[in-house]
């Protein structure tokens, strides 16, 4: 059992090196655009960190793997419901004008670990 225990711990550590970056797309013509898919499930968003640049129109496609969740970007007027599993995707756009860290969170009570459902949009100035 000790070996299996260590195997499980090792599996968790190995996952450190296999993080998946959010899908991105950028197009010319007008301002820059970027699209990211975020999956919500009790009690996390994946990915929980999204990087973008000021002036970029960020399109966020939100899907739930279980119950209904909310998606709210603190300090903005983005606050939408993510429908339950198999009931579709909610899409929002967000165009940050200033660099900084924008916290997003689940805005619909979804269970005992609801408070853990938070993430960040990291906005940097174009180089």
């Amino acid at each position: 059992m000790t070996r299996v225990f260590l195997l499980l711990a090792g599996l968790g550590l190995a996952s450190l090196t296999t993080g998946v970056a959010p899908s991105r797309a950028q197009s010319a013509g007008g301002g820059a655009k970027q699209t990211v898919d975020i999956i919500a499930e009790r009690f996390s968003f994946t990915p929980s960190e999204v990087k973008t640049r000021t002036g970029t129109t960020l399109t966020i496609r939100l899907t739930s793997d279980d119950t209904a969740h909310g998606f709210r970007i603190i300090g903005s007027n983005v606050n939408v419901e993510i429908p339950k599993r198999s009931r579709g995707t909610t899409t929002v756009t967000f165009t940050p004008e200033k660099a900084g860290r924008y916290t997003f969170e689940c805005s619909q009570l979804c269970g005992a670990g609801h408070s853990f459902m938070r993430g960040e949009i990291v906005v940097e100035d174009p180089k």
Partner: peptide, 11 residues
């Protein structure tokens, strides 16, 4: 939170 601008109708 920094000031933000977005294109979503106010909720």
């Amino acid at each position: 939170p920094a000031s933000a601008q977005d294109t979503v109708p106010p909720s």
